[in-house]
């Protein structure tokens, strides 16, 4: 028996080591399993905010203290059942809604400037995070966030519920020259946003793209043709600074959270 015929491991392993195709196929299967098990169910199971064409969002049901299911249209804004029918009429507490045109333009700037590298948008269910940032984040709140922005690092504070905490004027000063407002801050100066106009063409295209998403698209009943057509006019004369401030002010106040409800189940 020559050295090359000797089996040093198992028969199967030896066979794999002699056959390129077999090695390739078995490796390709081995590395696929974990991802399939963890990812695919998120498109089907409850509590994942997968809501397209399904008002129950895969049967997601948050229950109050008495065990009564809270209707999903209390969590996710539905113009058909809400008393507020359009994006402009929407009020905080009506439920999760897509971004208004100016906010969406601001979100583009937020991503472009890499804000998510230092600011998370995901509050965890701990006492200190509740005291510091507010109610823990729920899946539905980021369902329209194509490219989620939960973040992984808090060099600066979490922004998931920053909306309404500071005035527009504070944000403007702070974004322009952070250390004028917070001397210890290490945030870069974003004064240049004040000079750049919002790109209305890009915004209009972005809104269209958001309605074309295969998963959780913005309903065409919300981004109606009229809303998309009116977007350019709505952001006329606005700067990127205005848009970022609008975006920040829109964060976190969509859902009216009630005591004692387990929103993550």
């Amino acid at each position: 028996m020559s050295d090359h015929d000797q089996i040093y491991s198992t028969k199967l392993q030896d066979k794999i080591e002699r056959n390129t195709l077999l090695m390739f196929v078995l490796t390709a299967i081995t590395v696929a399993i974990g991802g399939i098990v963890e990812i695919v169910p998120l498109f089907y199971l409850p509590n994942t905010a997968m809501c397209q064409n399904d008002p129950t969002c895969n049967g997601t049901s948050h229950k109050d203290l008495q065990g009564n299911a809270i209707p999903m249209d209390k969590i996710i804004w539905n113009p058909a059942t809400s008393i507020h029918k359009t994006l402009d009429d929407w009020q905080p507490g009506d439920g999760v809604r897509p971004y208004k045109p100016l906010e969406l333009a601001g979100r583009y700037v937020f991503i472009r400037e890499g804000c998510f590298l230092c600011h998370s948008q995901m509050i965890r269910p701990f006492r200190d995070e509740k005291d510091r940032y507010g109610h823990y984040s729920i899946a539905e709140e980021s369902m329209y966030d194509h490219t989620y922005q939960w973040g992984s690092k808090r060099t600066g504070p979490d922004l998931a519920r920053v909306g309404g905490k500071y005035s527009d004027e504070w944000h403007r000063k702070h974004l322009k020259y952070p250390r004028d407002v917070v001397p210890e801050s290490v945030m870069p100066n974003f004064f240049f946003l004040d000079k750049a106009p919002v790109d209305a063409v890009k915004l209009t295209k972005t809104m269209k793209v958001m309605t074309q998403m295969p998963f959780n698209p913005v309903p065409k009943t919300i981004y109606t043709d009229a809303v998309i057509a009116g977007a350019a006019k709505e952001v006329e004369g606005k700067t990127e600074m205005d848009s970022v401030i609008a975006f920040l002010q829109s964060l976190g106040n969509h859902v009216k959270f009630e005591e004692g409800v387990n929103y993550r189940d």
């Binding site: 905010a49 899946a139 194509h146 989620y148």
Partner: peptide, 28 residues
């Protein structure tokens, strides 16, 4: 992702699904 123009595109996933897919990518 779906491109908006040459410079910008948006992930076809959102929220929970996007987070899991991103860290499936990130950690692997």
């Amino acid at each position: 992702a779906i491109p908006v123009d040459w410079a910008t595109s948006y992930s076809i996933y959102s929220g929970v699904q996007d987070a899991m897919i991103q860290w499936w990518w990130g950690h692997n």
